[in-house]
């Protein structure tokens, strides 16, 4: 159904157009400024008077960003961490969601309530203990059994992903959608001799594909954009630095007047993959935000 509620009643809603368009311009302008600045030459950015357009559309800043930031390495780390987190969240959520929705076993209500309770704790409670646990992880990164002597799990790229591998909201979300699958379908497959794992993989997962895409997309975007935890881990071990951390580092350490266009070029390159993915799978993402409202 097309809305356009009062178009029929009171003609074209000019005032509404004005409000919405003004808001949209305010939303988009910073992105345009980012792109324009990424093309500006030396002495063109941050000088008075302000000019929106660059003198020439030169790709020099992009070349400089790739070179100075070592963008390929940052990209590799970001991709690895994001892939690990997304795969793990999808796998653990759909497995646990299936058990909680469709299997009958003692303790089910308790586990479900536990999952709900985990969503109550804000992430900032965990920065300190998570970091200390990773640093003191026994028998990793040169640590002895008591967790001393080395850098623990922080030597590994997995450190970027570890705190995000399981997501209470993801379990809750998949469970809610799996409850709707009729039991008869699963029972029929079991009578045909399918084990629970086969039932999960061949029936439940395909039937819940839309919600898994939604969850995957939300997780992907969050993981790709994550900054605080990645900053912590990268400080302990610069080899696993991700895109946001690397670009921020350049911003902080070099003369801003000269590097702003290079930073903007790096930002454009780092924002582009998520933006494209979002535009392609918008429907799923929008539904996810509606379901979670966590942003």
């Amino acid at each position: 159904m097309t809305r356009g509620r009062s178009t029929g009643r009171r003609g074209v809603p000019w005032l509404s157009y004005l409000v919405v368009a003004t808001g949209a311009v305010l939303t988009v302008v910073p992105f345009c400024d980012m792109v324009m600045t990424s093309f500006k030459g030396p002495g063109e950015a941050g000088t008075l008077p302000y000019r929106f357009l660059p003198r020439a559309f030169d790709l020099a800043n992009y070349r400089a960003a790739i070179r100075q930031l070592d963008l390929p390495a940052l990209f590799r780390n970001s991709v690895a961490a994001t892939a690990l987190i997304t795969a793990s969240v999808l796998l653990t959520s759909s497995l646990a969601g299936y058990a909680l929705a469709k299997l009958r076993f003692p303790g089910r209500d308790f586990v479900f309530r536990l999952v709900l309770a985990t969503m109550m704790f804000p992430p900032f409670l965990f920065f300190v203990p998570h970091f200390l646990i990773l640093v003191h992880w026994p028998l990793a990164g040169g640590n002895d059994l008591s967790g001393r002597g080395g850098a623990g799990l922080t030597v590994s790229i997995a450190a970027l992903a570890v705190p995000f591998l399981v997501n209470g909201f993801g379990i809750f979300l998949t469970r809610q959608f799996m409850v709707a699958i009729p039991d008869e379908v699963l029972e029929a497959a079991r009578i045909d001799g399918a084990g629970e794992f086969a039932v999960w993989w061949r029936i439940v997962v395909p039937q819940t594909k839309p919600v898994l895409v939604t969850l995957g997309l939300l997780t992907f975007v969050d993981a790709w954009n994550e900054y605080i935890w990645a900053l912590l881990v990268s400080t302990a071990n610069p080899d696993v630095m991700t895109l946001p951390v690397g670009i921020q580092l350049l911003q902080d350490h070099v003369d801003p007047a000269r590097t702003t266009p290079i930073v903007m070029a790096g930002l454009v390159l780092s924002v582009l993959p998520v933006l494209l993915l979002f535009l392609l799978l918008q429907k799923y993402y929008v539904r996810g935000v509606m379901l979670s409202g966590l942003k």
Binding site: D33, M34, N225, Y227, V263, M264, S270, V271
Partner: peptide, 20 residues
Amino acid sequence: TLYFLPIVTTVVAVGNVWKY
């Protein structure tokens, strides 16, 4: 879609663009 762009953008981009 337009109003959604900032949500999928990393805080490092948002922060630096506005700072500038």
